Computed example of a mutant assay.
Amino acid sequence: MFRREQVKTRMQLETGKSQHGLIGSFQSIIKEEGFGRLYRGLVPPLLLEAPKRATKFAANDFWGKTYLKLTGESKMTQQLSILTGCSAGATESFVVVPFELVKIKLQDKMSTYSGPMEVVRQVIRKEGVLGLYVGMEATFWRHFWWNGGYFGCIFQVRGLLPKAESAQARLMNDLIAGTVGGFVGTAINTPFDVVKSRIQGSTKQAGVVPKYNWTYPALVTIFREEGPAALYKGFVPKVLRLAPGGGVLLLVVEVTLNLFRQALGPPYL
């Protein structure tokens, strides 16, 4: 999984209309930098995984209940599920940014950092603590749109699937819904992920306005200079990770919640 993440980042940081495909990027990294480079930047995503997932579903639950109360609806609708997902993604983005920044800095081909802590020290020394939040706006939009697509699709797909008559059937429905949601969320948010990688991978120079600064203008710049396909650089390794990952994630969350419901009872969940 992590090797795909490294390849995705490299593909997104590569400017110009010509680019390596998934296999070509793998081969290029191994040939030029060695096999071990595929695992560079491993620590930040590992440290991030648990708090990110916990924040995602806790925020989705919070915003879902909040919007139901505000609108007076008795049950979730398609529109509310999308709004809830977008809000959960916005909340999640604040947790994600520093970890993503460190990962990008380590995975850049030109990176000379010895490890995660050196990235943190150097960024704080040069830019202050807020330097760890470079790319916050792009990360916000990346998670806003992914979670909106993910949770919105889960609601829609669950409604289209045959009603589950057993626990196994419900789990299968969750796996399918989560996988479709992961695919759709990735298809929607990849352009924003490309911009985020470009912003966080750039080096600030005194007196020079960054080429990639704000998300939507950067989308236009990449589209104009590199073509529409450039906005989907890294899509294949990204979707190979996040589509099945979205299914497994929903499955794990639902199994865990069911265990808690059995142990604590409905009033607590």
Rank of each mutant, 00 (worst) to 15 (best):
Y150S: 04
M136S: 07
S166K: 11
L175E: 06
W145R: 06
V180M: 08
F151S: 00
D174P: 00
Y150K: 11
A138G: 03
F140V: 04
T179L: 06
Y150F: 15
C153G: 11
Q156M: 09
A169K: 14
A138T: 10
G148A: 06
W145G: 04
A167G: 12
F183T: 13
L160F: 14
M136W: 10
M136A: 07
G152P: 05
C153R: 02
L175T: 14
V180N: 04
A138Y: 03
I176K: 09
G181N: 06
Q156G: 01
W145L: 14
A169D: 10
A169R: 13
L175H: 08
Q156I: 00
A164T: 07
F183N: 03
G149M: 09
Y150I: 00
G182Y: 09
F155K: 13
A167E: 15
Q156S: 11
G182I: 07
F183M: 15
N173Y: 04
H143D: 13
M136L: 13
L160S: 14
N147W: 01
W141G: 04
W145T: 14
N173S: 13
G148P: 03
R158D: 10
A169F: 02
L161V: 12
N147L: 09
G159M: 03
E137T: 11
M136K: 00
G181S: 08
G182Q: 10
M172Y: 10
A169W: 07
F155M: 01
F183C: 13
T179N: 07
G181W: 03
G181Y: 05
P162E: 11
W141M: 11
Q168V: 07
G182L: 11
E137L: 02
H143R: 08
L160V: 05
G182D: 07
I176R: 08
A169Q: 15
L171R: 15
L175C: 14
H143Y: 14
S166H: 12
R142E: 13
Y150R: 10
C153E: 05
V157L: 00
F144L: 12
W146Y: 14
A138M: 03
L161W: 09
R170S: 12
Y150P: 04
Y150T: 01
V180Y: 05
N147S: 14
L171P: 03
A177E: 05
T139P: 02
R158A: 02
T139M: 09
R158M: 12
R142S: 08
A167F: 13
A164M: 10
H143Q: 12
A164Y: 06
W145M: 13
W141K: 02
M172K: 12
A167K: 15
Q168R: 15
A164H: 11
V157N: 00
T139C: 15
G159I: 00
Y150W: 12
I176Q: 08
A167C: 09
V180C: 15
A169T: 03
K163P: 02
A177S: 15
A138I: 02
H143K: 12
Q156A: 14
I176T: 10
D174W: 03
A169I: 03
G178Y: 05
G181T: 11
